[in-house]
């Protein structure tokens, strides 16, 4: 799917920015809203929501490396009931649409969570997270199998008419086959992709630096890997590709759009710059004016 990098839309809706906030670093957008930091944000993708509450992985959950960040948060969230009751009503105040990211430890859990979320008028759509590297059950293993992706997408499709994206894993399996499976299963987009499995060890003690040993690696340094994957996947599916991984500066966003992304998610950058979306959008507009006018 090729697109004009100057016009930004998703699921029939036009946006004045190509910048989405990736799942995990923006909560449900409410803290950033309270900070006044959602300017320039087209869509917020929420933290993962699961059927039951999850307290997340034991600390340490973060290790910064010379060139990036390993995280092992483990889908900490209050569970779908608390999200419905306590969070989504407040999300009505967001100045932009909210996509709810959904995770599950069984194939059926994704549709079960979406089914519950259907009771809210808030979600613009869903992001089905079949690629979390930080959980024992589900996670990467689901996304790596096209058959599983197909089954999960079909189950979700059965319970909602809202659009949804499937967030794929770069860690195992074939991204293109999983993307095709998502499309055939009824997904309306694919998110390419998630963090890369990584690990650090204290060589003096032999002990891993993260409690759960491995984590998901994010960094400006993974940008070329995302560009390659977005480029490949967007040429073999007809649904939009949402790029996620490594976008840090305005040119990164434009590059991912040129690679075929419909929209671009930023995550790790928001941890450092809560106003990242507005800063990126200003830069993007400047580049487009200078270059393409």
């Amino acid at each position: 799917m090729t697109s004009d990098i100057r016009s930004w839309s998703l699921w029939g809706r036009k946006f004045t920015s190509p910048v989405m906030l990736a799942s995990g670093t923006a909560g449900f957008g409410l803290e950033l809203l309270e900070r006044g930091s959602l300017a320039g944000t087209a869509i917020v993708v929420s933290k993962a929501t699961t059927l039951e509450p999850r307290e997340g992985n034991p600390p340490p959950r973060l290790v910064e490396t010379r060139f990036g960040l390993l995280n092992s948060v483990g889908l900490a969230n209050p569970g779908v009931d608390a999200v419905m009751e306590n969070i989504l009503p407040s999300a009505a105040m967001l100045p932009c649409p909210l996509i709810v990211n959904v995770a599950g430890k069984s194939e059926r859990e994704f549709a079960a969570v979406v089914d519950r979320l259907e009771g809210s008028s808030i979600p613009f759509g869903y992001e089905i997270n079949v690629s979390c590297p930080n959980v024992a059950a589900g996670g990467v293993a689901f996304g790596a199998s096209p058959e599983t992706v197909d089954r999960i997408a079909r189950m979700v499709r059965e319970v909602t008419d809202r659009p949804f994206s499937v967030k794929l894993t770069p860690n195992e399996g074939s991204l293109t086959e999983s993307a095709r499976a998502a499309e055939e299963g009824g997904a309306n987009a694919v998110t390419v992709s998630n963090t890369y499995l990584g690990m650090r060890i204290d060589w003096r003690t032999g002990k891993p630096l993260l409690h759960r040993s491995v984590g998901g690696y994010s960094s400006p340094a993974i940008l070329p890997m995302t560009v390659a994957r977005v480029f490949t996947v967007s040429s073999c599916v007809d649904i939009p590709v949402l790029a996620s991984g490594g976008a840090t500066c305005p040119e990164d966003i434009l590059e991912l759009l040129a690679a075929g992304a419909a929209m671009v998610q930023v995550g790790t950058r928001v941890m450092r710059r809560p106003d990242a979306a507005a800063e990126l959008l200003t830069g993007i507009k400047n580049f487009l004016e200078e270059t393409l006018s």
Partner: peptide
């Protein structure tokens, strides 16, 4: 991570 309550790190 963030320092303002969103990343759960």
């Amino acid at each position: 991570g963030c320092g303002y309550g969103v990343c759960e790190g």
